[in-house]
Design a binder for these strands. Structure first.
Lengths: 216, 216
DNA sequence: TTGCGATTGTAATCACTTTCACAATTATAA
DNA sequence: TTATAATTGTGAAAGTGATTACAATCGCAA
């Protein structure tokens, strides 16, 4: 095991390995080789081994990796060995879609509270998640010690929402509004922009000699 | 101008430059330097120039870039100089959220038809988009010569949907189901997995010495 | 017309990531 | 017990991407 900078792409691939491992566990598989683990993800066996080696020696030479223990090792590496409470701000179409998004809990995420400013929505319960008034963001997030939030408000309200969230102690933001959000240095932000994803597709369709496959 | 492999990240950054340029155009700015263009995107001026240089010599030494012509040059490079018709399959919560997603038309994308299997939805018009029976996917996509599709069906139907779409001549797929889709070599696919995005956030929160900022 | 500050485009360098290739280890069968 | 096939972990090499630094060019003011 070494203590050097881990490539961002290696981290992303860990999620893919984890997904494969979960399938294998379901099938009752006990051990797996890097070669098999790499299958279907368009990655080499050496890449798999290298990625894993950034975090520890998880395999046994001549044998491979134990499926169950590799699952828990990767989960632990990714910080998925505990439950993450998530706050959702903006219960519009996209927001309520996310409340129903399958696979969040699989990785240990639980949207535990949602906020909106629409009086018609406030007070309702959506998929066991209570919708609260946005004016209570700071109070509730502080009280529940929530660290991750999803922003699905209209673009005009996005920056103000980010400000309130960071003030409330949120440390990670998944932002769906197509806009720069200015946030403190110590807060992590990830922006998902669907128009840009489509745009990428358009680029690679236009220049179709290259590739745009992405299995993440 | 050179003819070498363009880094994927460079292509992504072009979208950010384009967004900045659109703001600048609105403000009536006529020319702009790589230095100013880089601002707010956490990128160096040299990076901007390098990215642009993969596609041509768009600037003038001592002067900078003409805002209007750089906009159209970048659009042309990205394949956004024409309108792209897009088919949407699966008008559930996420699907209907995408029908309302602002910013798609800004880049020239138009969801021109949507498909679902629910008789209660078929025939309705959603934001000027007619919802058709999924059994007609192949016929309509062939007729309209649509090249890009978005898959927002439940995970259980995703692979079958991808099969039909590629059979109909779709060349690019934006996939929102958390699953591998097996598709022909010449079809481009981009998968958006919200759980993995959150997972990335969790990783960088857990290992908070590194960074997870991403402005795309 | 000349000189100067601004700015690009890119060659060279530096940094990071992936691939290669093989010693070390393990299980198993003879 | 020994030989063999399977498989990992990793140092070194190759490949890719980002940064640096500067010659070349431009507009403008004197």
């Amino acid at each position: 095991m070494k203590k050097i900078q881990v490539p961002k792409e290696s981290v992303k691939r860990l999620f893919l390995y984890l997904r494969n491992l979960n399938y294998l566990a379901q099938e009752g598989r006990e051990t797996i080789s890097s070669d098999k683990l790499a299958q279907d993800i368009y990655v080499s066996a050496a890449q798999v081994r290298k990625d894993l080696s950034y975090f520890g020696d998880f395999g046994r030479k001549g044998v491979g990796y134990n499926v169950q223990s590799l699952i828990s090792d990767i989960k632990s590496v990714l910080g998925l060995d505990k439950k993450w409470l998530v706050a959702l701000v903006g219960v519009g179409r996209l927001g309520s879609a996310l409340l129903n998004y399958p696979g969040l809990e699989e990785l240990g995420f639980q949207i535990s509270v949602a906020f909106d400013i629409d009086p018609k929505k406030i007070g309702k319960t959506y998929r066991e998640v209570k919708i609260k008034d946005s004016s209570q963001i700071e109070k509730i997030i502080k009280k529940e010690k929530i660290k991750i939030a999803i922003i699905t408000v209209p673009v005009s309200a996005a920056q103000k929402t980010a400000d309130v969230l960071t003030k409330a102690g949120i440390k990670g933001i998944l932002n769906f509004s197509p806009k720069y959000l200015t946030i403190p240095e110590n807060v992590k932000i990830k922006t998902v922009n669907i128009a840009i994803e489509l745009g990428n597709l358009a680029y690679y369709l236009t220049h179709s000699e290259s590739e745009a496959r992405s299995f993440i």
